[in-house]
């Protein structure tokens, strides 16, 4: 029960997945989607463990007043707010597009409708259609175009289209009526958090690499041995060959196909030597992965049990 059943489960799921690779016939062709769905479900349940662990570790930190316990409070608040709004509201962004026609003098709304009707679009300049579809309306075929336009906010400032901005355009017609297109993006709190917190934090964290790559190069590229020299040399050439500065050093053309310059050596290194090295790593690693996978399926490799 403790070991036998897991081994059986591993064997069967592994074998079913292998079989469906070669048999495109029913019922095997349905297995892939089915099992992938199951995996998603289990992952969702497993996530509960992670969140509980995160809460537990931080609550302990707060209750025992460990070093830096204040930040655990921030963490827990951020976590609970995101989960609360995220689970109740959802995390997607809803887009509603409406056209508003109103009198610019009295600010009285004349009519508003969803931004699809071709009749209204004709009067609009700079409308950029995104897609068009044929729809039957009262027995009549009609082409409905959906599109986007430049944004002009109320104070008359043109705002460039970006993902997070509402898109608007106001056109003043002769009779003082104003047609305004409003693409309202009613983002949920979860989506707002993603856009304004997580995305910025992620890309900033990613950008730290620019600093670290410089310091790593300074520290590690020392010609301590022949291998280190090769590492250093090829990095040196590729770095110079990649940027325009590398061209300044000129080139020696021996033959149409043999040109000695930083950019051309860079291309050669990347295309041939790098390919060879990467290929060997890929081959070796893949064989290792296959071997371990086979051992898992036949029940020889059991690290995932986490002990006996």
């Amino acid at each position: 029960m403790k070991r036998g059943i897991p081994l059986l489960i591993v064997f069967f799921t592994g074998m079913i997945w292998l079989t469906q690779y070669f048999i495109p016939h029913y019922p095997f062709n349905k297995v892939m989607n089915l099992l992938s769905d199951w995996m998603k479900i289990i992952a969702a349940f497993a996530m509960v463990l992670g969140i509980l662990n995160l809460l537990r570790v931080n609550f302990i930190k707060i209750s025992r007043k460990h070093y830096n316990w204040q930040y655990s409070i921030i963490l827990i608040i951020a976590l609970l707010i995101t989960i609360g709004f995220g689970c109740i509201q959802g995390i997607t962004e809803n887009v509603d597009t409406t056209i508003l026609v109103y009198n610019s003098k009295s600010n009285e709304v004349i009519s508003s409708s969803i931004f699809v009707a071709p009749a209204i679009i004709e009067g609009l300049k700079n409308f950029k259609p995104i897609s068009s579809e044929d729809v039957e309306k009262d027995g009549k075929k009609e082409t409905i175009q959906k599109g986007m336009m430049d944004i002009t906010t109320k104070n008359g400032k043109v705002v460039k289209y970006t993902d997070s901005n509402p898109v608007k355009r106001i056109i003043v017609k002769d009779d003082n009526s104003v047609i305004e297109t409003v693409i309202v993006k009613t983002g949920t709190v979860g989506h707002w958090i993603y856009k304004n917190l997580i995305e910025h934090l992620s890309s900033t964290m990613f950008s730290l690499l620019a600093f670290f790559i410089a310091s790593a190069a300074f520290r590690a590229f020392r010609a301590k041995s022949f291998e280190a020299m090769l590492l250093l040399g090829s990095a040196f050439i590729v770095m110079l060959g990649k940027v325009p500065i590398g061209d300044v050093f000129g080139k020696i053309e021996i033959h149409e196909k043999i040109i000695i310059s930083f950019p051309s050596i860079q291309v050669w290194l990347m295309n041939y030597v790098n390919t060879a090295g990467q290929r060997a790593i890929l081959l070796g690693a893949a064989i290792g992965i296959i071997a371990i996978s086979i051992k898992i399926i036949i029940g020889l490799e059991r690290t995932y049990f986490g002990g006996e």
Partner: peptide
């Protein structure tokens, strides 16, 4: 703290 909390929650 904000990053970990928000991303785990998200």
């Amino acid at each position: 703290a904000i990053f970990i909390g928000c991303s785990a929650g998200y």
